[in-house]
């Protein structure tokens, strides 16, 4: 009871918003954040795909250690790590239960651990990379590798809208609370309260959708007047936008270093 109260205090809407925004925009000074987005793409293509095809535990453990280091240097928010752990444990846990249910025995534990290890490597690689790029950087990186302007812009804009959407959702949620009737008793295991809050959490999305679509009208018009359509279709604008994007020494060191480490893992 006391624990849940403390936990919910920490997990206020405000707090979630702060964590999300810091994850997106707050880590501009870490080593990974100073790299060119293309370096990160190349790096991620390797560590996001290759682990699927590797079955040697020693290599996977080696990669896992490397990922833990990059995650630490990327200063990822504890909330994200917590959610990740929860996901991995849940995933592994439910597979174990299902396997047991259908007559498996403890011998499946080892393959499950290997699978969890693979998933961890991939997830940590994603987290290190995407927490190290601001949405702007990600969007410019994508633009550089040939993704259309509309798509790359949408990614950056989606993030820009995030705090507004959370706030709006919060307001609607509060309106439901101010006008609704909370259950008089919490019920067994808080079941009544959970149902009550679960219900308004879902209902709050509808008004949010309607008001957001109304807002979007102005945004689309504004984009038109700000020449975004012109910009998406003119190569010189793209060039102007990406003029600062360059491979530097750090990029080369990082890629070569990663290569050596992987080769080392395979040769041991």
């Amino acid at each position: 009871m006391e624990f849940t109260r403390k936990f919910t205090d920490k997990l206020s809407v405000e707090q979630v918003k702060i964590e999300l925004l810091n994850t997106a925009y707050g880590n501009g000074h870490t080593f990974l954040a100073q790299l060119d987005p293309r370096t990160l793409f190349i790096w991620y293509t390797f560590f996001g795909i290759v682990p699927w095809f590797i079955h040697q535990e020693s290599i996977l453990i080696g990669m896992f250690i490397f990922m833990v280091i990059t995650t630490i240097t990327a200063k990822v928010s504890p909330l994200i790590i917590f959610i990740l752990c929860l996901g991995l444990l849940g995933q592994g846990g439910y597979m174990l239960i299902v396997a047991m249910f259908f007559g498996g025995d403890w011998s499946i534990l080892l393959p499950l651990l290997v699978l969890t290890l693979k998933l961890s490597v991939i997830s940590l690689a994603s987290i290190s990379v995407f927490c190290s790029m601001t949405p702007e950087k990600l969007s410019n990186g994508l633009l550089k590798i040939g993704v259309p302007g509309q798509v790359s812009f949408s990614i950056a804009y989606g993030y820009r809208m995030l705090p507004t959407l959370i706030e709006e959702y919060h307001h609607v949620f509060q309106s439901f609370r101010l006008r609704g009737k909370a259950p008089n008793k919490h019920g067994f295991l808080y079941i009544r309260s959970i149902i009550y809050f679960g219900k308004i959490a879902v209902l709050s999305f509808y008004p949010l959708l309607l008001s957001t679509s109304k807002r979007a009208r102005t945004t689309v018009e504004a984009l038109e007047t700000k020449g975004s359509f012109y910009g998406f279709n003119h190569p010189q604008v793209k060039k102007l936008k990406l003029i600062d994007m360059k491979f530097g020494r750090k990029d080369i060191y990082f890629l070569i270093g990663s290569c050596f480490y992987v080769i080392l893992l395979f040769t041991i």
Binding site: T219, K226, H234
Partner: peptide, 29 residues
């Protein structure tokens, strides 16, 4: 012609102040 809307908040399209101010001239090249 520059137009500032009544619901001007929806007119801001970039996360940072300087980026939003740059947006139009940048996209006009």
């Amino acid at each position: 012609v520059g137009y500032v809307y009544q619901d001007f908040e929806n007119q801001l399209v970039s996360p940072k102040v300087i980026e939003d101010a740059c947006f139009a001239p940048l996209h006009y090249g």
